[in-house]
């Protein structure tokens, strides 16, 4: 077990507070979506502040796992309707934000991006008060190569300490599953999907599930069975993974919020890997006009077509 150096987080917290204070008092933004300390020791929760005086409430800690971008789209109830909105984002969150801009859901000039240099956050399965170590770090952070967000309006100027080499859970699990026979894989996923209670928390938390009416809620025709039975569950997760292919930014919120611990991000990571291999596409900090499945190249691979 290796301890991960998160000493920069206090300086980051200070810088976020300073920037929030400045932008709110100067009227540059009307609100800031960030993290604040929650009741349980060491825990954090999302907060929307509209008052410069509240800037002191903002924090950044290993418990700041949420992807806040969802508060800019479908969960924007508490966000003022007018003015520019500031948001605190980690690298992974920024990729989602940028993805939403590419899908015309957000306009760059309407948001003020406060990027966070990030050494990693805690896995959802551990106590928020725990120390960030090679054991407690979230799986998504193990495979993250973008500690410093780019293209933001503000990024605290701190030196990110060198990260230790961590075991890549997703890659290992994908490789393990790929090595199985189709029947064994089916058995694995059948077991996983059978746990699903169709609470749709994964859909609720996903920044990219912004449809007003989900395809899976339609009944004319019913494309996907809506009852929480194995057939409908499987169809739902396949459709979800397909709809996120080429869009998912890898924030892993779906997996974090799943009450049944279904490894949902595994599907998304698998699709991301395939699309990278096929079309050299990866979620990034650059606004992409067209995702990999909204465009084509005449020379695309077609070895699977007879």
């Amino acid at each position: 077990m290796t301890t991960i150096d998160t000493s920069i987080y206090s300086a980051v917290t200070e810088a976020i507070r300073g920037e929030a204070q400045r932008t709110l008092s100067e009227g540059l933004v009307t609100a800031i979506v960030g993290y604040a300390a929650a009741r349980r020791k060491g825990s954090a929760q999302p907060i929307v502040i509209t008052n410069a005086a509240d800037s002191e409430k903002l924090i950044f800690s290993p418990a700041c796992v949420n992807n806040l971008t969802v508060y800019l789209t479908k969960a924007k109830k508490e966000i003022p309707k007018t003015g520019r909105v500031g948001i605190v984002v980690k690298g992974c969150d920024l990729k989602a934000l940028v993805g939403l801009m590419g899908e015309s859901q957000l306009k760059r000039d309407e948001i003020y991006i406060i990027g966070v240099p990030c050494a990693g956050v805690l896995a959802s399965t551990v106590q928020p008060s725990q120390e960030l170590t090679s054991d407690t770090i979230a799986s998504k952070c193990r495979e993250c190569g973008e500690f410093l967000p780019q293209g933001c309006d503000f990024v605290p100027g701190v030196e990110i300490p060198a990260a230790p080499e961590l075991e890549k859970n997703y890659s290992a699990e994908i490789a393990r599953l790929e090595a199985l026979t189709p029947a064994e894989r089916w058995a694995y996923w059948r077991e996983q999907f059978s746990k699903c209670v169709k609470c749709y928390a994964c859909r609720q938390v996903c920044p990219f599930c912004f449809c007003e009416q989900c395809l899976c809620d339609r009944n004319k025709p019913q494309m996907v069975e809506s009852t929480p039975r194995p057939a409908g569950n499987t169809a739902w997760h396949i459709v979800r993974a397909m709809h996120l292919a080429g869009r998912c930014a890898g924030c892993a919120e779906c997996e974090r919020v799943c009450p049944m611990d279904i490894p949902l991000n595994l599907l998304n990571r698998k699709m991301a890997r395939e699309l990278k291999e096929l079309y050299a596409y990866e979620a990034s900090f650059q606004v992409n006009d067209k995702g990999p499945l909204a465009t084509y190249d005449e020379k695309d691979d077609q070895s699977f077509i007879k």
């Binding site: 089916w186 096929l278 499945l293 077609q302 699977f304």
Partner: peptide, 21 residues
Amino acid sequence: FHARRRFAAFRKLLEFIGVDL
């Protein structure tokens, strides 16, 4: 061309779920 990309991705997903391609 659009279909080709869509199905290239979809078959990979089905394969991963355990459908024999």
